[in-house]
């Protein structure tokens, strides 16, 4: 049991770090996708389509086993969270996009008329209004990512499932450790979705207020 809990810690860490990365990657991708220059837009769209159309497991293998051949050697945990972050970052960019597309064109025009730069416009005008409505979606992706972390066991990360398997192979008792893992996933997922629903209720309707 304590070994499984240690694994749980790794799982949660991977989820939190992976999600933080995905939020940043998603933001960069969505801004790239909405750039004025086609030289930026085309490759960004390709990257998003490419990553979304290939399985996370393949991407993890690639980062962990192929990158070293290219001179990029990463530990299993780091490779794992980068894989999660990139993969979910692409989904996150679509989430951001739906939030940004809902901002009326007039907000952009007002920002131009006041001579704000594009960065200032995103930071002060667009994102504070676009982010609150998409937070529930972000929460759902957080739960999906959490449930995808066992894939990291394939690149030797000692997360919860991997530890349970190890306990099983040492003791020949698979039932107990795997059941514990299943229950822990269930509990945390349920708690997270309750938190997401709570969040929906308290989100500011008109965007994050700026005084």
């Amino acid at each position: 049991m304590p070994r499984v809990l240690q694994g749980l810690l790794v799982t949660v860490e991977a989820t939190v770090v992976g999600m933080a990365l995905a939020l940043v990657v998603g933001l960069v991708l969505v801004i790239g996708r909405r750039a004025r220059s086609r030289i930026i837009v085309a490759p960004v769209r390709f990257i998003i389509e490419f990553i979304r159309s290939t399985p996370l497991l393949v991407q993890l293998y690639f980062i962990f086993f192929v990158f070293p051949d290219l001179g990029i050697r990463l530990g299993p945990f780091l490779a794992g969270v980068i894989g999660l972050g990139l993969h979910y970052g692409c989904y996150m960019s679509e989430v951001y996009r739906s939030g940004i597309d809902n901002i009326p064109k007039g907000q952009w025009e007002a920002a131009i008329s006041l001579d704000l730069t594009r960065i200032q416009t995103y930071r002060d005008i667009i994102l504070p209004q676009a982010v609150p409505p998409i937070l529930p979606m972000v929460g759902n992706y957080l739960i999906s990512m959490f449930k995808d972390t066992p894939l990291l066991s394939a690149i030797t990360v000692l997360e919860m499932l991997q530890r349970a398997k190890m306990i099983g192979s040492e003791t020949f008792h698979y039932f107990e450790p795997l059941t514990v893992v299943g229950i822990l996933f269930l509990i945390l997922s349920l708690l997270s979705s309750v938190a997401v629903r709570r969040l929906e209720k308290i989100l500011p309707k008109g965007g994050f207020p700026l005084k």
Binding site: P104, G106, Q107, E109, A110, I112, S113, L114, D115, D124, I125, P128, Q129, P204, G206, G207, F208, P209, L210, K211
Partner: peptide, 18 residues
């Protein structure tokens, strides 16, 4: 652009700002 200011038909105030 700094020379020019505009007021729009539909205001376009920033709703999250006082």
């Amino acid at each position: 652009r700094k020379n020019v200011g505009m007021v729009f038909q539909h205001f376009h105030l920033f709703p999250h700002m006082t």
